[in-house]
Design a protein around this nucleic acid. Structure first.
Length: 850
RNA sequence: GCGGACGUGGCGAAACCGGUAGACGCAGCGGACUUAAAAUCCGCUUCCCCAACGGGAGUGUGGGUUCGAGUCCCACCGUCCGCACCA
């Protein structure tokens, strides 16, 4: 038996064995409990990176463990294969996006296989293939039929570098999330999904997601941004022709209003601009203002006095000036606000600048003076004052009273407003799902008939010119109208790739040829029991997928409210950064012993940061797997750092994991446990070694580890499971040969099997077991062995530790107290006094208060 | 500005319901084996005082509750994340 474990040979052998046995195929007809374990599927960028390895290792441990505890497990893998990098590659290297993508998939699949993940490859899918996106087109038409899709001309975020429209979510600080280019506003006809119809459901649904991180739930809550208030009209005063509608969450402060402000994009503002050049100039000035956080922070509140006036709803004799103001957003509420300077900081700054009245209408403690002093608005609660019929009410009552009056008198209504916008899904790109619509001059936008799906992307396209190749393809878009037969044009926009990832987890659960999924089959697996991925998807992907699932439920296609019952967001893999004296970033391979290998110059050690190409601190998984084997890499990914926190990659760390795998193997291959060769006597491992001697302490350690590791894996606390396994290995190594020790080694293989499956299989086979350890059962816990018979009791004097005693578990209070009092050190610290008070915590501690 | 998370050895961390702080790993130091190295094994490793026994301090800072606080409460400091003129 080799003393060393050779991962090169073993990894390949067992990966082939798992393939041959097809043991990770999900069985939807299994009678036992079902478990759907899913990691966020990767974008096929070319190579897998350490972040993928960490992500998929976590899911794999859970999937393998669940299988060992008798679950039918669905653990699939696929490719989020549409998207811009493929088109960028096409432009830079002249390769077709499809070829580029499929080649990357092949490379990455091979890399994933080398890590030995227990995946059901029979369900592999790629979103760029017609057998996936064709069904997506059908689902899009289903949503269209249900009235959840609409088209409108709207100002969109245009990325001038990528030549495409971006969703609001893809604009960060006014720049495109990928290109970093300053985003422009453009008017285009766009397809939208009515996610706002589900705003309430998506918000309420968060309540049920108790296995999601609070952080993510909160982020989604804030993103949906529900607020309640009053939408109402200020009646116009000539020469203003129409009333101005505003929304306020503070109708209780209506008697403190001193102006009305409208957005520069408001129709009334535009109308005024048409007549007044100085108004037009002001609006232009507003648009020039920056949109970054820093700029907004320092930007002053500017207004343009239109000279127009409106009437206060509660007083015909009270007029308010109308300003165009740079801080009013057109796409929230109604694009106009009432300004209540005393109780809103922004309004206060505006009022002070333009010398408007600042009238207190909510008492701040005792101060009810109608003249509001100072530069800090009062936004707290209190009694309403200086407000006619509202006087004396508290803020909440006053809100209700105003809404009631407004509704009774017909000038306003209580309303709910959301920050969430409808989801614009049109993209002016080639490498995406074609939107299955045909535009006809006579019939308008006509859905592609179902029997003509999928609308397949043409292969013969060029990327030598910027813009959308579908739009300039010579034949593809020219079709006849399905309704009237006249010449018509295909929609040349493709769907946002977030649509592709909004339902892939359903397709994994069921993939018939003739439809997107079979309801009964999908419902056997859904919702996903444990979803694992990066926090960067906390809002966009997870919200869209939740919406899509709710929409399908609404259509009666799938009776699942929430797609992901459990969510786990894992931390990043980080690495030290290195900088040469001249400021170049150096890769880890270029540095040895703090010096640059090429020049011998000292290297500046930078911060530990997320692995990234720009900082050159990435470590490729491939060569690491070559060198150390899959098990060592997997073990490292699970060790030390809690999975939700960042994991610092280090050479020393992977070396340590390698040493541990070898330690395991030395135990697995120790002579006492291996079956003897024919002719050497009894083959049963139990007969070897130890001669039947029991080692109760080791038995206890083993069973505590079995229970502890199980609990840790269930809680995804892999670092704790790893620590417990180290403890067990240390205990086994220290123990004398015995039947207990042999049993512990055999159980150890099962315990590490989810994490280091290759060395576990190798042991299993060496022991002459039939079948695969991947199909074996998790060891049974003997509850009797979980409790200790002896405990160490801490002895404190005045709360300070002075001694420890070993006592039988469950010892009587008096015995423990007496033993404590007779401790030399205790006697010394009591200095002859009798303790005033004795606290005994059974089996834990005695505290003597002197 | 609003919302949230987190601060524990040289490093990654653990500590269940308030009960022996630092398990486990990494790095480091000392030793064994070896001609030597690698590999492996044994021991030490929070800081300070002490030859040792032992003692003192210690979980970002300052208070508080308690027999007892890393854990609970109040205030502050710092780091990170999300949102950001949201009416």
């Amino acid at each position: 038996m080799a003393v060393r474990f050779n991962p090169l040979a073993a990894d390949a052998r067992w990966q082939a064995a798992w393939d041959a046995a097809q043991c990770f195929r999900a069985d939807s007809d299994s009678a036992g409990p079902r478990s759907y374990v899913l990691e966020m599927f990767p974008y096929p960028s070319g190579r897998i990176h350490m972040g993928h390895v960490r992500n998929y290792t976590m899911g794999d441990v859970l999937a393998r463990y669940r299988r060992m505890t008798g679950h039918a497990v669905l653990h699939p893998m696929g490719w989020d294969a549409f998207g811009m990098p493929a088109e960028n590659a096409a432009m830079e290297k002249g390769v077709h996006p499809g070829n580029w993508t499929r080649a990357n998939i092949a490379t990455m699949k091979a890399e994933l296989k080398r890590l030995g993940f227990a995946l059901d490859w029979s369900r592999e899918l790629a979103t760029c293939e017609p057998d996936y996106y064709g069904h997506e087109q059908a689902l899009f038409l289903d949503l269209l039929d249900a009235g959840l899709v609409y088209r409108k001309e709207s100002a969109v975020n245009w990325d001038p570098v990528d030549n495409t429209v971006l969703a609001n979510e893809q604009v960060i600080d006014g720049r495109g999330w990928r290109s970093g280019a300053l985003v422009e506003k453009r008017k285009l006809n766009q397809w939208f999904l009515k996610i706002t119809d589900f705003a309430d459901e998506l918000l309420e649904g968060l309540q049920s997601l108790d296995q999601w991180p609070d952080k993510v739930r909160l982020m989604q809550e804030n993103w949906i941004g529900r607020s309640r208030g009053l939408t109402f009209r200020f009646a116009p005063l000539a020469p203003l022709a129409e009333s101005i509608e505003v929304y306020s969450t503070r109708p209780d402060t209506i008697f403190g209003a001193s102006f009305v402000a409208i957005s520069p994009d408001h129709p009334i503002a535009r109308e005024i601009a048409g007549r007044q050049p100085d108004a037009a100039a002001f609006i232009e000035q507003c648009k020039a203002g920056g949109t970054t956080a820093a700029e907004l922070d320092t930007q002053e509140k500017l207004g343009f006095d239109t000279g127009l006036e409106v009437l206060h709803p509660f007083d015909d004799g009270w007029t308010l000036p109308v300003y165009i103001a740079n801080f009013v957003l057109m796409d929230y509420g109604s694009g106009a606000v009432m300004g209540v300077p005393a109780h809103d900081q922004r309004d206060l700054e505006f009022a002070r600048r333009y010398g408007l009245e600042v009238r207190r209408v909510v008492a701040d403690g005792d101060s009810a003076d109608p003249v509001f002093e100072g530069d800090a608005a009062y936004t707290g609660l209190g009694a309403v004052v200086n407000s006619g019929f509202l006087d004396g009410m508290d803020v909440e009552d006053a809100k209700r009273a105003v809404i009631e009056r407004a509704e009774a008198e017909g000038w306003g209504r209580g309303s709910t407003v959301y920050r969430l916008r409808d989801w614009g899904v049109s993209r002016q790109r080639y490498w995406g799902t074609p939107i299955p619509i045909i535009h006809c001059d006579a019939c308008g936008a006509v859905p592609v008939p179902r029997d003509q799906l999928p609308v397949v992307l043409p292969e013969d396209v060029g990327f030598d010119v910027p813009g959308n190749p579908l739009d300039r393809h010579p034949t593809w878009k020219h079709v006849d109208c399905p309704q009237c037969g006249a010449k018509a044009r295909r929609e040349t926009d493709t769907l946002d790739t977030f649509v592709d990832s909004s339902w892939y987890f359903i397709r994994f659960a069921s993939q018939p040829d003739d439809k997107a999924f079979d309801r009964a089959e999908a419902e056997k697996w859904l919702p996903v029991g444990q979803y694992i991925g990066g926090v960067e998807h906390a809002i966009l992907h997870l919200l869209y997928a939740r919406f899509w699932t709710r929409a399908l439920k609404h259509l009666g296609k799938l009776d699942v409210a929430e797609p992901f019952a459990g969510l786990f967001t894992q931390g990043m893999v980080t690495h030290e950064t290195y900088k040469a004296a001249d400021g170049r970033w150096l890769s880890p391979g270029e540095v040895r012993n703090g010096r640059e290998i090429a020049t011998g110059e000292a290297v500046e050690l930078g911060r530990v940061e997320k692995m990234s190409k720009s900082k050159r601190n990435t470590v490729e998984p491939g060569p690491i797997v070559d060198q150390y084997g899959a098990d060592a890499v997997r073990w490292f990914m699970l060790s030390d750092s809690p999975p939700e926190r960042d994991l610092p990659w280090s050479e020393a760390g992977i070396e340590g994991s390698w040493r541990f795998v070898q330690r395991l193997w030395r135990l697995f291959a120790s002579p006492e446990i291996l079956p003897r060769k024919a002719g050497e006597g009894d083959h049963s491992p139990q007969a070897n070694g130890g001669g039947g001697v029991a080692d109760t302490a080791l038995d206890r350690k083993l069973h505590q580890t079995i229970a502890g590791v199980a609990a840790d894996i269930d809680a995804l606390a892999f670092n704790k499971a790893v620590a417990k396994l180290y403890e067990l290995v240390n205990a086994i190594e220290r123990a004398q040969p015995s039947a207990s020790r042999t049993a512990a080694i055999r159980a150890l293989a099962l315990l590490v099997a989810p994490m280091a499956p290759h060395v576990a299989e190798e042991a299993w086979a060496a022991w002459g077991e039939t079948g695969l350890i991947a199909d074996a059962s998790w060891p049974q816990v003997d509850p009797a062995l979980l409790v200790e018979d002896e405990v160490t009791i801490a002895i404190q004097v005045n709360g300070k530790l002075r001694d420890t005693l070993t006592m039988p578990k469950g010892a009587a209070r008096e015995d423990v107290e007496a033993a404590a009092l007779s401790s030399d050190n205790v006697v010394r610290f009591l200095e002859g006094r009798a303790p005033k008070k004795v606290i005994v915590v059974p089996d834990r501690l005695v505290n003597l208060v002197a």
